[in-house]
Design a protein around this nucleic acid. Structure first.
Length: 287
DNA sequence: GAGAGTGTTGTAAC
DNA sequence: GGTTACAACACTCT
């Protein structure tokens, strides 16, 4: 389950490796993963050159030279994109983590070979992820479904406050709503609340201006720091080179239920269910 | 061995 | 219209 920092890390890594490469015929091992016409998918992709890789929220967009469409890939909860230069090594020569030692394996649903013999593998245990070819008009529709990302210059405190105005929900659900703020997933939403000293179960209408400001700053800081560290490593996440992310050891509350709070030392991290998601916080120093 | 829980998000229902 | 519950799936953990 990559969140935004992980997807951004994958985007950067893959862009540096793949721009200029030309797709050969894709191998679709699990047809339902391809959410567009199968014949068209293979036909339009084959011999298409990658000119760049963009991202909207957690959706990756592969730009194709002289094609009326882009390749959209969403990893959802458990997807991986792995680039290999041959059967034994990743680009850079690093050994694979255990899960990806043999490729392709039973969770490899899509293989994108390139004309130079290298390959991009799409693995997904839970099969929620997808790939599709979409025209520019559709991309615009997708783009409109997402709010601003916290690092966007237009994501100001005034903008943040306007998102909160009149909203009748709890903080956690607000932070997870991609239509309002694009890019905060479950892990980072908990970390943002902790950094801001605010409980995730607070009604948004009850937040003071000081708390709003702390949350606004935390959204930007937490994501920026996570991107710097190439994202979190949990379970099956590996980044574009097959290397684990580096933010996991910096998590303050996520996955620490029952342990002492790293900040106040007195509280014990609680785990509750909010907006249908496991939610972690310190009852002692978040209020 | 049964049942709950898991990083996302579109859809349906309130 | 806004908000919430659930499903999509296959695994791990209790």
């Amino acid at each position: 389950m990559p969140e935004l920092p992980e997807v951004e890390t994958i985007r950067r890594d893959l862009e540096s490796l793949l721009v200029g490469r030309v797709f050969a015929q894709p191998e679709v091992r699990l047809p339902k993963i391809v959410k567009s016409n199968q014949g068209e998918f293979a036909e339009l992709l084959t011999n298409a050159e990658i000119t760049g890789i963009d991202r909207v929220g957690k959706l990756l967009l592969f730009r194709l030279k002289d094609r009326p469409v882009s390749l959209h890939i969403h990893l959802k909860m458990t997807g991986q994109l792995i680039y290999r230069t041959d059967d034994r090594f990743v680009a850079g020569g690093h050994p694979w983590p255990a899960l990806t030692t043999e490729l392709p394996h039973k969770y490899t649903h899509l293989i994108f070979p390139f004309t130079d013999g290298t390959k991009l593998y799409f693995n997904d245990l839970r099969q929620f992820g997808f790939a599709r070819l979409a025209p520019a008009t559709e991309e615009e529709q997708v783009r409109q479904k997402f709010g601003l990302e916290p690092h966007d210059p237009e994501f100001t405190f005034d903008h943040f406050r306007s998102l909160l105005r009149g909203r009748k929900t709890i903080l956690k659900a607000f932070l997870l709503n991609q239509q309002l703020i694009a890019g905060l997933g479950n892990i980072y939403a908990d970390e943002v609340c902790f950094a801001a000293h605010v409980r995730p179960d607070r009604p948004t209408a009850s937040l003071t201006e000081t708390e709003q400001d702390r949350l606004f700053q935390a959204c930007r800081d937490i994501l920026a720091e996570a991107i710097t560290h190439r994202g979190t490593t949990l379970h099956d996440y590996v980044d574009g080179n097959g290397e684990p992310g580096g933010y996991a050891k910096l998590l303050k509350v996520y996955g620490r239920e029952g342990q002492h709070c790293l900040r106040c030392k007195n509280g014990v991290i609680a785990k509750i269910r909010l907006a249908g998601r496991g939610t972690h916080f310190c009852p002692n120093c978040q209020s």
